[in-house]
Design a binder for these strands. Structure first.
Lengths: 209, 209
DNA sequence: ATCGTTGGATTGTGCCGCTTTCCCATGGCT
DNA sequence: AGCCATGGGAAAGCGGCACAATCCAACGAT
């Protein structure tokens, strides 16, 4: 398949595909001549993945780069791919050297310790959670463990469900895609449903219809 | 308080504060002379809100503008503020006129109808959900109602919990802040916990420790 | 032979969120 | 009275990002 067909089938412009190749998100086609390269279904599949991560996951190109690199590394285990994805998802803030921040971060670490969760000490999600704690406190809505309980329950139930859905015997590439779908795409599913449920709750409480 | 003190206390530079004033995110101080204005605690509070929406919620300035405008509109009810916030959260994609997209959107509408949720037909979260459906299908992981069930349950439980937390007798400004915290900030709490729970589940399933 | 297509490289573009720069008025200290 | 740090207001600049446009030389189908 030529690049123009790849463009048609993927819905991306030729320039964008070239851009992705330059940035290392997509492999070059196999060179047929100095002005022809051949692309196959795997290139299309890759573009679909890139598109999902970009459009739905709203990931920057640099983050997708990292994920793709981990996907390509056939030596890496699935858990390593997981870590790379988490790291790519961010946040990319450098925690300021602030006492409030350190306190929030300690609360987060303590919570994870109590739950017995096996989570890397460098997981960016720790900082993400600490950041929200700080912001909530600064706004005068300190968060308590009681507030968190339903969220913790829901989060672990869903995570369990997601891991259970990964097919065991499937080829690696499919498992990898499934893993990324679970993390990046199902996160959006959860967010969307949460917003919809909130609107319903708000309508029932404040609405006049 | 002068702008320099406001700058010190908020952690934002004077220029950034001026920028927010220009953009309509923050009210001007009360003019004391042609070169002095006076800022009070409400300005500081507002800056904290802006910061939370920006740093934690990752909202663009234009979205914060819309939310602030709704907050300022003392005639608007809380449910309207809710709708504005939802709209500001996005996504801001124009649904393409694609059969897959229309089908996904119909699935979403049907789901919401079955659940009996009172959700505006223009709620962007409908599109967000439809978008993930399309992406999942294109990747070869079609989503089923069974897959969604645990997410729906979790989402409505949390939404119920969040609405219940809003204090009834509090002054409007506090309720408004609480509402925004529930929607924008608790969404991040949920996301962070979901990621942490996933990492734990992944470690238990794939990890070697 | 011609004309469209491709690869490869360079340059340009539009948006975003500030940041810098200027200018000038003023207030308060000396 | 003189001086200068501070503040207000407006305009222009900047750095990052994700492409998009343009140009060129080399093919390849007709």
């Amino acid at each position: 398949m030529q690049i123009s067909e790849l463009s048609d089938r993927s819905g991306l412009t030729v320039q964008t595909i070239k851009f992705y190749i330059r940035e290392g998100l997509l492999a070059k086609g196999s060179v047929v001549s100095s002005t022809r390269s051949d692309y196959d279904e795997r290139h299309l599949e890759r573009l679909r993945l890139i598109n999902a991560l970009r459009d739905v996951g709203e990931l920057p190109v640099s983050a997708i780069q990292q994920i793709i690199a981990a996907v390509e590394d056939r030596d890496a285990g699935l858990h390593e791919l997981f870590g790379t994805t988490q790291h790519a998802l961010g946040p990319h803030v450098v925690p300021p050297d602030d006492p409030h921040w350190r306190a929030a971060r300690e609360d987060v670490d303590a919570l994870i310790g109590e739950l017995g969760w096996r989570v890397s000490g460098r997981a960016p999600a720790r900082d993400l959670l600490a950041q929200t704690f700080v912001a909530l406190r600064r706004l005068g809505f300190p968060i308590t463990l009681t507030d968190l309980r339903p969220y913790v329950r829901a989060a672990s139930d869903m995570a369990e469900h997601e891991m259970g859905r990964l097919a065991d015997g499937a080829p690696r590439s499919r498992t990898v895609h499934s893993l990324l779908a679970s993390t990046v795409l199902y996160e959006q599913v959860l967010t969307a449903l949460h917003r919809l449920a909130q609107e319903d709750a708000s309508a029932r409480r404040f609405g006049d219809g």
